[in-house]
Amino acid sequence: MTAAPIAPRKAGLSLQQQRQRAAFWFLAPMLLALICVAAWPLLRTIWFSLTDTTLSNLYGGTWIGLDNYLSVRTLSSGKVIYRGTLVDPAWWNAVWNTVRFAVTSVLIETVLGLIVALVLNAEFKGRGLVRAAILIPWAIPTIVSAKMWAWMLNDQFGIINDMLLRLGLIDQKIAWTASTDTAMYAVLMVDVWKTTPFMALLILAGLQMVPRDIYEAAKLDGINPFKVFFKVTLPLIRPALMVAVIFRMLDALRVFDLVYVLTPNSAATKTMSVISRENMIDFDKFAYGAAQSTLLFAIIAIFVSVYIWLGRVDLSGEGNR
């Protein structure tokens, strides 16, 4: 924006300079707040991960370097002992669970979200009603959805087992949340139910930017609708899709509440966030948990950088101005 051609009110300061000075003071309180709740705690977490601090004695920790991550000790007998998160099978199990959960859930949600968005992009009677209906899962608190589904997935009295039995898809009741084989499916089911609406709405916003005459032209040329979708629609909504996928991915990689409530203490679903908090708060291995959460932060940071770099995603929205 160019400065309006009027005389500066304060000696020596142009309007633009004056605005920039005001901008600084407008930003300062927000920046201060974010430093207090984000930057400083993050640095402290990283610091704690390099000490042997415990929950009961937050200031009694001493510097132990990278020992929480990996320490190598050679015993007098010549035996080498490795310790730390990086050789902890429970940690790698949590990493695997998280990655599996994130990739599968985002993939399913993208496909279903695309379908729902295409439906909502068509004009039909009752479209408003459908949009209202899909907003319901989004509005329900995650904890509440976890409890609702835990009840529906209950092994003895759950309605899902009842439905599947009636349809003849299973011949005996399944302990969805308790059994290690199915716990992950249960978590995925609830997550897909809860977050597909969000995905659909983001994709729908992208779809609505596609000019309608493109479809008209394709129709006149007699092109098969599927071909139109893959050759025209999909490339055009790619930016919206990329942004939606990264937002969901980041959310899925840090998943905590759903897993914590739906399948408590199940090794089959325990994610990185769950295991970090467990060590930090429940097991009094505060520094060890801090190391694990630092690793999670690093993994997410690397993932985002690679994604933005490879996909050339424009998150700031400044590019289209």
């Binding site: 705690p41 993050l42 640095l43 977490t45 980041l250 840090r254 990185m272 966030s273 908090r277 959460s293």
Partner: peptide, 24 residues
């Protein structure tokens, strides 16, 4: 850059600040 940083904070894994916030 500032806008991207702000966005990055909202996408933070909350567990990463848990230990530091707990202390604070």
């Amino acid at each position: 850059l500032l806008l991207m940083t702000i966005l990055a904070v909202s996408m933070f894994p909350q567990i990463a600040v848990l230990a530091g916030l707990f202390e604070l």
